[in-house]
Structures are given as C-alpha cells and as structure tokens.
Design a protein around this nucleic acid. Structure first.
Lengths: 107, 107
DNA sequence: CTGCATCCTTGAGGATACTG
DNA sequence: CAGTATCCTCAAGGATGCAG
C-alpha cells in the first residue's frame, strides 16, 4: 500500500498534477512512457485513496479532468522533495554506478 | 531507476539504516517480510548507487556491516519525510478507500 | 476523447538448497 | 552468518480492439 504511493506512475502523476488540473490526454502526453491502461489504473488508485478528484464533463467528445485533493497536495510536498533529490543527484548516482560496475569488471 | 530508489525494499532498508550501521541479519529481522534474496539484491543496488557501503569482516562466522554513505544520508531526508507522511495519513487513506469502495458498491 | 476488456509477455520476487 | 544459485509463481504492465 505504501507500494501504491511510492510507485513510479503515481509519483509522476502527482508531479504532473502539481501545477494544476489536467485532462487525461494531457497527463498521458506529459508522463513519459505511460500506457493508457496504466494511467487509468494509476488514476483510479489515486482517486480511491482520496488523493485526486475526477470530474467528468458530459460533452462530445468527453472531457475528464483530474485535480489533486488537499490530501493529495500535502503528499505532493514529500513526493516533490524526493523527485528533486533524484534530479539533483542523478549525476552522482550514475558516477557511483559506473565506478561500481568498473570495479566488478575485475573478472 | 527512480524505480529503484522509490521501491518498497529500498525505502525500508534506508529507514532501517537511518539509525546507524546494521548487520545483514539485523536488517533482515528488522524489515518485515523481506526475503534473504531480496535483501541481498536491494543492498547490492544501494551499494551500486553509492548510497550504502558494505564492509566485510573476515571472521568466522562472517560479519558484514552496512552503513549509509553521505549521499545515502541525504536521500534519507526526503525518504523519511515520505514515510512519515504515509504513517501520519494512513487513517485518512483507509477512510477514503472505504468511502470509494462503498460508493462503488452501487451494483 | 476517455475509457474498459482481453490477451500475452516479462520480470519481480518467494521458496529452497547449497557454500565459504 | 552471509550470501549464491535455481526453480517457479504470480501479478505488473504493454498491445490491441471495442464502446460511449
């Protein structure tokens, strides 16, 4: 269940929604590599946990908007902190990885 | 790759190591439900990313200690924040889930 | 456009047994 | 004690097609 919140798509979705309400297709375009199926499942899960609201506009073509709830916005704080840490330390991580793999090369 | 850092076992391992160096068996006992295999893999991954150091004492029986690196300790900050958020909001999440599932019960 | 349903593949991860 | 190796299962997740 922590797994749900900690997982890749959930994090990316929450980050996407950080700067405001988004439509389904916007999310799909914005989240790199997510399939329609996984985006749907992720959004359902977040909705179930009370982290996002889903608002349907019965127009043609249909329009569905997703927004972070207050609870979702509070989660967004630590999630973004984590995201920023990763971004900031990516070079460091990759360097460490190269070092490690090079050392393991003593075959 | 974010996946690695965000994943369940990594988070729990980092939290375990937050209060200092730990032996392999201590970690296994402390992290609920982790298999020996997964703990090994998780620790290798963290070591590879330069987040923990592994120190082997060639005694009998062998003794291996794991410690967070400075980089690991800096990651520990947002990770713990996330963990605390989950702990603090668990009741809220469960309530939302019950509401959602009850609403879906209109079959 | 926004989904749901179905099929199928892949890999995460558990169980178990063996080694230094 | 601290792994490594192997096998096996199950569910995450991609691809595709259909529907409102």
């Amino acid at each position: 269940m922590l797994a749900k919140i900690g997982d890749k798509w959930s994090i990316l979705t929450i980050m996407m929604l950080s700067d405001g309400t988004k439509r389904f297709s916007e999310l799909q375009r914005g989240i790199d590599g997510v399939s329609q199926r996984m985006l749907t499942l992720t959004l359902r899960g977040l909705e179930r946990d009370g982290l996002v609201t889903r608002e349907v506009f019965p127009t043609i073509p249909p329009r569905v908007e997703y927004t972070l709830t207050p609870l979702g916005r509070s989660l967004q704080v630590p999630v973004i902190a984590l995201g920023q840490w990763v971004t900031a330390n990516l070079p460091e991580l990759e360097a460490a990885r190269r070092r490690f793999d090079a050392a393991a090369e003593e075959a």
